[in-house]
Amino acid sequence: MLDILVIIFMVMGLFFFFGTTVGIVRFPDFYTRTHAAGKGDTLSVMLMLFGLALYNLHHLSPATLLVSGKIVIICVVVFIASPTATHAIMDAGYEAKVRHWSRPGAPKDPQDNSGEKQ
């Protein structure tokens, strides 16, 4: 029963990691790529770590509970730190006026000031 849960968590983590990788490789510009890295990475790391924490509870004892607790704390830290770092990187990119991608032939956004400095 526990094994099934662990497998579900790990496979979901792998799935989102795969999605992250595809996103980083295939998305067209800096913003969308950072977006994929920040979102998918956080979720998949948390899922996989949670799966490992569950797997560790096969033998229920204070020692394994302690280890699982530490893994859950790592989850919390990743949950806070990873999206914040992504936000900071993207903010820095916006301030440095990195050009964003738009569909070829799309009308130019009048409020778009990101393309002034190439």
């Binding site: 730190a81 914040t84 903010d91």
Partner: peptide, 8 residues
């Protein structure tokens, strides 16, 4: 100031 960074 960036409130997200400061809170984190």
């Amino acid at each position: 100031a960036d409130i997200i960074l400061q809170t984190a």
